[in-house]
Design a protein around this nucleic acid. Structure first.
Length: 769
DNA sequence: CTCGGTCCTTTTTTT
DNA sequence: AAGGACCGAG
């Protein structure tokens, strides 16, 4: 790929502070790749002296891929690979990398942190259960008055502003902060006792370690060339980390775009750029303003919207691309119609659904529209919304139309009970001090170790400073427990020790299987679930094993440790998809790293987008507007924006005025979608397509997690006479419903008391309960 | 006291 | 979907 002069300039300045202002679609990733390649191939810089920080793991993966390609080597699978290759990862993964390295070479005392090498990472729910325990059992506080979530928020806020528990006292100015202060101290104690870190700690501890001159010096010498992408979304600890690392050689390049800063709620601080300018007042500034992604009309629109923001640099994004299609505005009467219209547009524009599936794709079109009669795939469509919960209506419409899709959620897969259970086993095997994990699994599956026994052990732990494994091993000494309880605990210990033993011999994938076997986890699932749920849980377990096989090439205990670390940071969106043909749905936040040929931006109503939480405050509102800008600039060729006059939201029907962002868009390119003509067609096709004669009709479900493979839940062919009005039916996706009306095959099914959905009961994957 | 079943609530955005 | 509250059975 040829770089333009600006990109070339950014590529060549490698031994000087550099600020790359790179606006949406300016091929900054390509520029960064070229820059790394230039360092290595032209300037003979040692590969392992280069560090690049990305915002997501997905971006890191892609970056490693791209860099590897230009170097003709295979891309390392993770940050941890010891090969001679640049270190490319997120702040969090690099932080863990640093901590592990340092902890293996120094004693914790020297580092002035309590962390030990086998630390674990607590996710949001682990964090909450630690806090709940503190608030309820130690402080005896009412959860309504002092919700754990809120306390967690304050603590997180403190950490990200680099305020330690000890120093928090100065912040106390209200009764809630009084509680926060006390809880913060206890919380830190608990983490230390469990050798655990939360997400914020990863950054804070990394910074703490780098503040030790000797260690800082080591790292400065090791990584002399630094690059930070998405610099506008860095927070205080991240800023400090970068500043320290770069302070010796000053070879720091940051990529920045204030119009795409959408993470202030995670304490991203836009002022970091001001600090950067102060720290490096001689930095070279390069502006990449040419957009290679979108059509002229889309760019003009996006510019118009973003320039309504008072703060930030004025955007002068431009492009050489053609004008192409107008942008369409869909103003639907209600949310169901909104979803139907979108789905129908996709259906009409896609050739993938055709029975004989024509050969797809013109090679030229991959990079830019070439004017050929382009054939469209489902995968060319990206549907965006403000919050995860908004995917539902669109999913329904897609299911009815039999279009494969996948929903990308932030985390989800690792939030599922069965996955958390199995991971907790792994965590306890890895680090027996992990109390949260221990408590989760000690009685899962049920082995009659009840709350009372656990409470007793907790007391021992608190009063004598013993760890759970120590207590369990010497359970006979615990006087408060009767023999019956002791035996239950001993039985657990037998399994546990077997597993620990096993973990030294076999890799983590096999260890997971062994856990399922020894704990009789399948039987446990068997007992309390319906068939579909059970199957999906078993599939999830298989998938977990599948993911774990990536670590097969390592030593057993190493595979366990690294698997756990990566799992803590991985989210749903990080997994590479296999380019199968499906429509993708996700939040705008998640979409930041990608682009698509045809993009739909939905729910453009006041209160929803911009969110009702943001409209009262200028700064928050401007962030919502940036979000709109990000959404629009994802589109390469076609952009649709939609709203519904009435919709079901927050458990009620609401009518909100159109979003202010709509009014900020210049009318000249706007086309109103022809609703009425279209609606007639749609209803017609809707009823005929759900005709019972289509035997091969199958429902595609969400398979938002890991594999990215859409899969068939049910090819239903129900006996309609089985159903009657008033029946309760269960749907694998939507749960239990009630049939409120039934007209031949067409049923109206109610979820809660107000929300009614029509579906064809013969083919819908429902069954009677 | 201890357990297990049922009903109710939850939801901004994610490393 | 899953944790918490609540209640009835043992």
């Amino acid at each position: 790929m040829n770089l333009n002069p600006k990109q070339e300039e950014a590529k060549n300045k490698i031994d000087w502070p550099l600020l790359i202002i790179a606006w949406a679609g300016s091929w900054k990733t390509a520029t960064l790749t070229a820059r790394v390649n230039y360092m290595i191939r032209d300037k003979w810089i040692n590969q392992s002296e280069i560090m690049m920080v990305t915002f997501t793991n997905k971006a890191a993966w892609e970056m490693r891929e791209r860099v590897a390609k230009t170097l003709w080597v295979e891309a390392p699978r993770s940050v941890y690979t010891k090969a001679n290759f640049p270190l490319i990862g997120t702040f969090h993964s690099i932080g863990i990398f640093v901590l592990k390295d340092v902890l293996s070479r120094y004693l914790s005392d020297e580092l002035a942190i309590w962390l030990k090498k086998d630390f674990v990472i607590y996710d949001e729910s682990d964090k909450l259960s630690v806090l709940k325990n503190i608030l309820k059992n130690r402080f005896n506080l009412d959860e309504k008055e002092f919700p754990a979530r809120q306390i967690a928020f304050f603590i997180s806020n403190a950490k990200n502003n680099l305020i330690t528990a000890k120093w928090y006292e100065a912040e106390v100015d209200s009764s809630i902060k009084e509680v926060v202060y006390k809880a913060y101290i206890e919380y830190e104690k608990d983490l230390a006792l469990n050798n655990a870190m939360d997400f914020d700690d990863i950054l804070v501890k990394t910074l703490a370690v780098l503040r030790i001159p000797k260690i800082l010096n080591e790292y400065q010498e090791r990584y002399k060339y630094l690059m930070v992408d998405e610099y506008q979304d860095t927070n205080a600890p991240q800023y400090e980390i970068v500043k320290l690392l770069a302070s010796k050689y000053n070879n720091l390049a940051v990529v920045w775009d204030d119009s795409q800063s959408i993470y202030s709620w995670r304490w991203a601080d836009m002022r970091n750029i001001i600090n950067f300018r102060k720290d490096y007042n001689d930095a070279l500034i390069v502006k990449l303003e040419q957009n290679y992604r979108s059509t002229k009309k889309i760019i003009a629109w996006a510019n118009a919207v973003i320039n309504n923001n008072k703060s930030g640099i004025k955007k002068e994004l431009w492009t050489d691309n053609g004008e192409w299609e107008h942008i369409s505005y869909i103003e639907a009467p209600d949310d169901k119609t909104e979803a139907s219209i979108i789905v129908n547009i996709i259906k009409n524009k896609s050739s993938s659904g055709l029975p004989q599936g024509k050969p797809l794709q013109c090679d030229k079109c991959r990079d830019a529209p070439c004017g050929c009669p382009v054939i469209n795939n489902y995968k060319d469509n990206l549907i965006l919304y403000r919050t995860n919960a908004q995917s539902r209506k669109i999913e329904e419409a897609l299911m009815i139309a039999n279009i494969p899709y996948r929903v990308i959620w932030g985390q989800k897969f690792y939030d599922r009970k069965e996955i958390k259970d199995l991971l907790s086993y792994l965590k306890v095997i890895h680090n027996p001090n992990d109390v949260i994990a221990m408590k989760r699994i000690i009685n899962t599956p049920t082995r009659k170790i009840w709350a009372k026994s656990i409470e007793t052990m907790d007391n021992y732990r608190d009063n004598f400073g013993l760890s759970y494994p120590q207590i369990i091993e010497n359970i006979d000494e615990v006087e408060e427990l009767n023999n019956w309880a002791k035996n239950a605990i001993k039985n657990f210990n037998i399994i546990f020790e077997d597993l620990v033993h096993f973990s030294h011999k076999k890799i983590v994938a096999e260890l997971i299987r062994e856990i399922v076997k020894l704990t009789k986890y399948e039987e446990y699932i068997w007992e309390w679930l319906s068939k579909e749920e059970k199957e999906s849980k078993l599939e999830n377990i298989d998938e977990l094993v599948n993911v774990a096989t990536q670590y097969n090439w390592m030593e057993p205990r190493e595979s366990l440790a690294i698997f756990l670390e990566e799992v803590a940071l991985i989210t749903d969106m990080d997994k590479n998809d296999e380019r199968s043909d499906y429509v993708t749905l996700m939040t705008i936040h998640t979409s930041k790293w990608l682009e698509e040929k045809r993009v739909f931006v939905t729910w453009l109503e006041e209160w929803l987008f911009p969110s009702f939480r943001s409209i009262w405050e200028q700064a928050a509102l401007e962030e919502e507007r940036r979000l709109m800008y990000v959404a629009m600039t994802r589109a390469r060729e076609e952009l649709y924006i939609s709203r519904a006059k009435e919709r079901f939201n927050f458990w009620d029907f609401v009518r909100n005025p159109e979003s202010r962002f709509l009014k900020e868009i210049p009318l000249e390119y706007l086309v109103n979608y022809d609703l009425w003509e279209y609606l007639n067609k749609w209803w017609f096709s809707f009823w005929t397509s759900s005709d019972s004669s289509s035997d091969s009709f199958s429902f595609w479900s969400t398979s938002w997690w890991f594999t990215g493979k859409p899969k068939v839940i049910v090819k239903a062919n129900n006996d309609v006479s089985m159903f009657a009005r008033g029946d309760r039916v269960s749907h694998p996706k939507f749960g239990n419903w009630i049939i409120t009306s039934l007209n031949w095959e067409l049923a109206e099914i109610a979820f809660s008391w107000k929300w009614v959905v029509k579906m064809n009961i013969k083919i819908a994957p429902v069954r009677k309960v």
